[in-house]
Amino acid sequence: MRLVDEVSGDMIIGLPPSVSAAMAMELLEPRLLSRGIVVDSICLAVDPSALEDQMWDSRTLWQAGLSSVRGDDRTSGEFLVHEIAYADTALLVEGLFAHLFEAQAPGCQSGGELFQRGTQLLGHLGPHLKVLHPERDIILGSHLAAAARRRAAAGNPCVDSTGHAAQESRSSAVENDFTTVELRAARPLHPARLLDAMHHMAEGCIWLRGTLWIANSPSLKMVFGGAGPFVWIEARGLWKTETARTHIALTSDSNNAPELTEMLRQCELTDAEMLQSTEMFEDVLKLGDLA
């Protein structure tokens, strides 16, 4: 904060691992705006060759040595999806492993198989991102605070206007291994059938996210999330003026879109179930504990 007050002209503020850009902006933005300073871009440096492994890492940030806060129980996958959503620009970099063990890690260098695969995955995790290659001209994306907060909000499926993760020329050199499938349901979901379906949906899914409309708590907006090996459901208040809906997206290298679509359709209430009281549905997801 002291440096912000003392420095004049353009500034580049670097954040250490595990420090959220959104949290930093919450602290800095009022001070910056009072001085007439505008944040042009939020840029995230990413080693694509390590991205998939980081998404699947089951350790907390504390256990992985990425946070100095002992109680920080976020996984790297949870942290990354939030940072990717909040950022507007991603700068692709080669990690230390690619340079220290070049002979043992040929796929980790720029243009290598792992580097290309990770770049493609990044396109699905952040379809909005302006992706920069260091060897090319660097033109940053633009930070729009409201849009960044909306993308990073829990339950946002983060898909582009076509309903698919953006796939631009940055991933055209490799076969399309990853896909993002977007699913919607028009009726409330049966909690027991949903619980069973969630196990199948999460299997092999590197990132899943969205909102759920569940029959035994129809007024509650439930958020569905998962990064790597962890899946969670949390309540986000009442639907209020929002239209209650189930809208989820799943990113994986093994998606079967027709199978996933049918799986969700089977979770919807039947005509007979739509007439039943909400008390008739067993709370197998323990939503009562989340309300």
Rank of each mutant, 00 (worst) to 15 (best):
R170D: 12
Q104K: 13
L96T: 08
R31D: 02
E83S: 10
R265T: 05
M263R: 06
L250R: 04
I139A: 08
D10E: 13
L32Q: 00
E282M: 06
S58L: 12
F115H: 11
A152Y: 02
V93C: 05
E113Y: 15
F224G: 03
T89C: 02
T180F: 12
S49F: 14
E282T: 11
A244H: 06
S252M: 05
E242H: 11
G118S: 06
M280N: 01
Q54E: 08
T278G: 00
S8E: 11
A165F: 08
L250A: 11
G107S: 07
L132E: 02
F178L: 04
P157Q: 04
R70I: 14
V81L: 09
V93R: 01
S68D: 07
R2Y: 13
A154P: 15
M1L: 12
R236V: 14
E102P: 15
L32S: 01
S8Y: 09
L100T: 09
A21D: 01
A145Y: 03
G9M: 08
F281P: 00
V131E: 03
M23D: 09
N256Y: 12
L290I: 10
A87F: 07
E135H: 13
L250F: 13
C267N: 00
L264T: 01
A249K: 05
V46S: 02
D5W: 07
S68I: 14
S20K: 07
S67H: 13
T89H: 01
H133G: 08
P48K: 03
G107F: 10
E83I: 13
V69F: 13
N156I: 13
M25A: 07
G225T: 12
R184F: 14
K130G: 05
V46C: 08
V39L: 00
T243A: 14
G155R: 06
R2A: 15
E135V: 14
M274Q: 06
P229S: 05
D253L: 14
I12A: 06
S254L: 13
L3R: 03
F79K: 02
R184M: 12
L92M: 12
A165P: 10
Q116P: 13
A103E: 11
V46R: 03
S49N: 08
I206H: 04
G95Y: 08
V93N: 01
H247K: 05
G155A: 05
R70M: 14
V131H: 04
A50W: 14
W62R: 08
Q109C: 14
W62F: 15
E52F: 13
V39H: 00
L238Y: 10
I84V: 08
I12E: 02
P188V: 04
G141N: 03
E175P: 13
L100E: 09
H199E: 03
M23S: 09
F79S: 04
L51T: 02
K286I: 15
V93P: 06
A146T: 02
S68M: 12
T89V: 07
L96C: 07
A147D: 00
L44C: 10
T119V: 14
E262V: 08
P134G: 05
L114M: 06
K130F: 10
L80N: 02
T251V: 12
